[in-house]
């Protein structure tokens, strides 16, 4: 309450938006993976189909989570009436086009029709259009937060890059998950997992740079502290660092069998969702300092261990 009065922590966007950002990113990532694999040759065709198959339903379900968060769902169509005013308006158009293209791709290539199976040129053309809007969807989830100028933790160039790499990595993990569930050991799937190791290492580098930069900047320092040592540190260290990055990285590097690939993919997908939640919840505005006075929330006195559970989590 006191943080809200001081205009510090954003409390409006929570799990619903985190799930939306995650599903939109992972779905578009899986679709992009599928399209790129389809370009790589006929031996990848089955795995490519699994990637493309995940695209439409995940993004659609993610969009439903966004609609559930709206205060006035009956007005939702108005977002499309003023394109170019805001990243939500632009993102709505990007996601709508992506949904249409990926739906056509899904219906005419995989189920129930398979007319695009032999029409390589047409399928690749559709794939290129879908690729552009799929990458747009992945980057848009970062730009949406990055456009909130008053929240310095979000408005950095690294956030769209971080969300893009995380979306591609979780998309590949979804593809690996589907492939490993469907067929036995395949060298192609292990090759995909090795590429995912590269993405996870990139994610570590970008995430470190993102948090380091946020920690160095006085205006976003309290957000970074909340993530690294504060109320969100459990989510960050256990969820993002351990489950989302380290465990999949080690499993993909050591084991090469189907069961462990499924485990790694599940951990990685959960980590991607928690990453979105941590970034959302850590969004905070710098304190209102004016005329030499510091208008910060009064810090609560340190309570004994037994009573520490009474302190509301996430209180900056």
């Amino acid at each position: 309450m006191s943080s809200k009065l001081h205009g510090l922590v954003q409390t409006e966007w929570g799990w619903l938006i985190a799930i939306y950002l995650f599903l939109a990113g992972a779905g578009a990532g899986a679709y992009v993976t599928g399209v790129v694999l389809d370009f790589m040759g006929p031996e990848w065709a089955t795995i490519a189909k699994i990637g493309v198959f995940f695209g439409f339903p995940s993004v659609l379900i993610g969009t439903l989570f966004l609609l559930a968060d709206l205060g006035k769902v009956q007005n939702a169509w108005r977002v499309a009436t003023k394109p170019g005013t805001s990243w939500i308006a632009r993102g709505t158009i990007i996601i709508s086009v992506f949904l249409i293209v990926s739906f056509i791709h899904l219906v005419f290539w995989i189920f129930p029709f398979s007319g695009l199976e032999n029409a390589d040129g047409l399928r690749h053309l559709l794939g290129i259009v879908g690729l552009i809007f799929g990458i747009g969807t992945m980057v848009y989830t970062g730009l949406l937060l990055g456009d909130a100028i008053p929240i310095p933790f979000w408005s950095t160039v690294l956030l769209p890059i971080l969300f893009f790499v995380s979306a591609l990595s979780t998309g590949i993990m979804a593809t690996i998950l589907g492939s490993s569930l469907l067929f036995q050991d395949s060298d192609l799937v292990h090759g995909l997992a090795r590429f995912d190791i590269l993405l996870l290492v990139m994610e570590i580098v970008i995430l470190s740079a993102f948090l380091h930069g946020a920690h160095r900047l006085p205006s976003s320092q309290h957000s970074a502290k909340e993530v690294l040592f504060g109320g969100l540190s459990r989510f960050f260290w256990m969820g993002v660092a351990l489950c989302g990055i380290l465990i999949p990285l080690l499993i993909d590097a050591i084991f090469h069998n189907n069961f462990m690939a499924i485990v790694a993919a599940l951990f990685g997908l959960a980590g991607g969702l928690i990453l979105r939640y941590v970034v959302l919840k850590a969004g905070a505005m710098p304190p209102m300092d004016a005329a030499g006075f510091s208008f910060r929330p009064v810090s609560k006195p340190k309570l004994p261990m037994a009573a520490r559970g009474m302190v509301p989590p996430g209180n900056l």
């Binding site: 006035k72 939702a76 108005r78 977002v79």
Partner: peptide, 23 residues
Amino acid sequence: TDICVGCKYCFMGCPYGARYAVE
């Protein structure tokens, strides 16, 4: 309020925390 969708993006755009959502 007739055309607002309630996306709460404006909360993130306001540096002064002047807006309040009422369910």
